[in-house]
Design a protein around this nucleic acid. Structure first.
Lengths: 347, 347
DNA sequence: ATGAAAGCGCTAACAA
DNA sequence: TTGTTAGCGCTTTCAT
């Protein structure tokens, strides 16, 4: 049995053809009504719309995609969906994509360059309208695949050495400045820092902003008080063990997980936070405000970053010129319980 | 300029037609080689494969989907991607889907029934091969849409009143039994419980398993020591405030977030954990092992659940009969630092 | 074992 | 303003 074409036949998905028949117009007119491309006689238009309603017609996105090269789908690649920051990115990106009439297909690359490549290839085969990705690997091959595909793309949260690629990032240098200024304003002079992996560009930027600001304002941050971590909780604890013999009153960790690990180890050592040591994190993850004392931290502007990323994709797609290839957004400081005045005894 | 068809022309995506021309066969033969449908002369096959390699040909999934009703895509709907448990589900589901040759499109419904419906409708329009979803709303409309679409689906993690729907869940009753038995074996007799919202079926099951086991083995759990929470951190703290005047030595929270809130409030009240009160959670989220003392908890078998869910989708798709409509998997107990022997003074 | 041709459901020339 | 028609790139009869 083929489709019957009768009104009210909702059990089988209706097609433009069915709608056309019911509305007594051609399929192209149906298409015109759906897509608002060229004007249609109001009366005809009404007939079509009513037929669409009657049959509960919804255009097959595969057919549309095949024909018009747009399936209203945007791909998002994140390195680790278990990381709350990336889950947040997924959430916001999806919200903005939906608002613009696009669905979002999320790929969790699991920090695996091969998987990242497989994902990109899959997205290309699905002819997505754009790809937003937080890049993990530096294999230029991936960038090449995506550039060849002519699919609009934008890199989010991690910046590339290359400058000619659309990118949306937090002002990482600024985050370092913010952390330093907050602690300096509380009277601290002896600083320590737990960084992320130094081979990541944004990590170096964060550190630079922090160290330069500390230096400029008379604080001290010798190399012995800098610990290179890996963004994991355990690294924070290890860092504090490592820094234990050194005297410092202010500590900035490059993410909240390491800050939490550091907090835990500081307390285990009998140090009071913030009375003996002030601590600042970065990310503003949800547990940050649950620990005791609640963590002072810097929040990334993920909402704005995602909005901007989706917006850039849509602009490129429409053939618009992008005013600035690199969008930099400001971090936000959340002052809570782990930062306080520098101990007066410390000189 | 149309596609050139020359070997090595990778800048424009090659099509079956290009491959056919290069291999000097018809497009149908190319299709046969790709899909291994009917046997192809080894020599011809080699020619085709080599052409595919040369042109870096990858079938357009929209075209394939349009024609064969399968775009190798499975949809996953979760109520909140920020919830680590659902992020974990996304991760595992994606892994198993990829292993089976499918991509996963993740939808974050944000606990919004309307959004859930929009998502389902979108997935239907994309003709996905299956839908896995952790259901939020009880609007039967959604189930109706998805059933009408004839797309294979399975409900994961949340069970429905309806029995005739493919479902994969943890044994929630068993989780309650496990929690109770662990605490009973440590000598506890005076129990308390922080539950999730009682209108959720799995919450009632958890509670039932806990209460029945406690009752059967001579423990006490009066209604005054049962607090209905909402799965959030703050609810755990509130619960403990509420239960404060009551004497209990063992507390089970229906998720880790509430357990952590409870732990925090217990410590604030000066109660020692586990010396005065033993505490058990559920979920085994990553921070569970980071707090002090590390949280004893029950882990959901998400990995197996996702594997099973994807497997069920694929079976239905192949037209196989599902042996059991409802798959129930066992939880796992992780004994850590928040549970210990009942205080001897407590009678 | 292989090829020719039809067609999935849609959009976009091109005509009228 | 509307209809006719030709594909998008693939799979799948139906012949051979």
């Amino acid at each position: 049995m083929k489709r019957s074409g009768e009104a009210g036949d909702k059990s089988v998905t209706a097609t433009v053809k069915d709608v056309a028949r019911l509305a007594r117009v051609s399929v192209s007119t149906v298409s015109r009504v759906i897509n608002n491309t060229v004007p249609v006689e109001p009366e005809t238009r009404e007939r079509v719309l009513s037929a669409i309603r009657d049959m509960d017609f919804r255009p097959n996105l595969l057919a549309r995609g095949l024909r018009s090269k747009s399936g209203n789908l945007i791909g998002l690649l994140v390195p680790d969906i278990l990381n709350e920051s990336f889950a947040l990115m997924s959430k916001y990106a999806e919200e903005y994509a939906e608002r613009a009439g696009f669905a979002l297909i999320i790929g969790n690359t699991n920090n695996d360059p091969d998987k990242e490549e497989r994902f990109i290839r899959d997205l290309v085969r699905r002819h997505v309208d754009g790809i937003v990705f937080s890049r993990v690997s530096d294999k230029s091959r991936i960038l090449q695949i995506i550039e060849e595909s002519k699919i609009p793309f934008v890199i989010i949260d991690r910046s590339l050495e290359q400058e000619d690629v659309p990118t949306v990032v937090m002002d990482n240098y600024g985050a370092g400045v913010t952390a330093a200024e907050h602690l300096l304003s509380l009277g601290h002079r002896r600083f320590a820092c737990i960084t992320g992996p130094m081979n990541i560009a944004i990590v170096r930027e964060r550190f630079l902003g922090f160290r330069e600001t500390v230096g400029l304002r008379g604080g001290s941050l010798p190399d012995s008080r800098v610990y290179e971590g890996n963004f994991k909780y355990e690294a924070g604890a290890r860092a504090v063990e490592h820094l234990a013999r050194d005297q410092f009153t202010a500590l900035w960790a490059h993410n909240d997980l390491m800050a939490l690990g550091a907090l835990n180890e500081l307390q285990r050592q009998g140090k009071r936070v913030p009375e003996d040591v002030s601590l600042v994190g970065l990310d503003n993850i949800s547990i940050a405000k649950m620990v005791v004392p609640p963590l002072t931290t810097i929040g990334q502007p993920f909402r704005e970053m995602c909005e901007s990323a989706v917006d850039i994709i849509l602009r490129i797609r429409r053939g618009e010129k992008i005013p600035q290839l690199r969008v930099t957004l400001s971090p936000e400081l959340f002052v809570r319980g782990t930062s306080g005045p520098a101990p007066t005894s410390a000189t």
